[in-house]
């Protein structure tokens, strides 16, 4: 199975804080992997390392065989957990921006997605509601035909109804030639679409397994298991 993402022995310190303590993880083609853990467990640090936003780390990270950097970025479609598109852009401007910079961007797809969500494309992003803004960002990211999709807290700040919609959108636009790595601390909504669950506790991987296998062997849902594993973590 082709490995889209390979991480080996990743360590990351922020000064004295040892944020990521030697994690190794692989994401295979065609899989949806959940990087799950409470806030502060190191999920975003790992993601930033993959995206080349953090330079000093120990260990090996490879995206389709390339180290984090500009070449790797061509193959990654990234949804950060902050709003990174200038919010005075109109939605249409954001679409042309993506079209300008990403060869694998499918503008038509994005437009259809946004139209089906009843999001007015000629409005400025800042004029839209928070939930709509998230949907805009997601639509742009999922309209790329990339090898790796990294979604950092795609459903974190959204109401339950929108969550379902976002999860459907992710599934609908899932590119089987690639893989998805998504991070979240809201397990119940997301678990039906995950192939693999990776539990991250205080910078270390405490579980990395096939989700159905977990259900079979432990006789409980991922959400339930998560609560058990992390019950003492604030």
């Amino acid at each position: 199975m082709e490995k889209i993402l390979e991480i080996n022995g990743l360590h990351k310190n922020y000064g004295k804080t040892h944020a990521v303590k030697g994690i190794s993880l692989d994401v295979e083609k065609g899989k949806i992997v959940g990087l799950l853990g409470p806030n502060g467990s190191g999920k975003t640090t790992i993601i930033k390392t993959i995206m080349g936003l953090l330079s000093d780390y120990d260990g090996n990270v490879a995206i389709a065989g390339t180290t984090p950097g500009v070449a790797a970025n061509e193959n990654i479609s990234y949804l950060p957990d902050v709003s990174h598109i200038p919010n005075w852009f109109k939605v249409n401007q954001a679409i042309s921006f993506f079209a300008d910079f990403y060869k694998d961007f499918d503008a038509k797809r994005a437009e259809n997605m946004l139209d089906s969500m009843n999001i007015p494309r000629d409005k400025k992003i800042k004029a839209l509601s928070r939930g709509m803004q998230e949907k805009v960002q997601l639509s742009l990211v999922m309209s790329r035909r990339a090898k790796l999709y990294i979604l950092d807290e795609p459903i974190g700040a959204v109401d339950p109804a929108s969550r379902e919609f976002i999860i459907s959108t992710i599934l609908k636009n899932f590119n089987e030639e690639g893989a998805i790595l998504l991070s979240t601390h809201i397990i119940a909504d997301i678990e039906p679409i995950l192939d693999v669950a990776v539990f991250l506790k205080e910078g270390q991987i405490v579980l990395n397994d096939d989700v159905e296998k977990i259900r079979e062997e432990k006789g409980m849902s991922l959400d339930q298991l998560f609560r058990e594993v992390f019950k003492n973590v604030v």
Partner: peptide, 8 residues
């Protein structure tokens, strides 16, 4: 920066 640094 999340946009600028992750552009190709």
């Amino acid at each position: 920066g999340y946009l600028q640094f992750t552009l190709p």
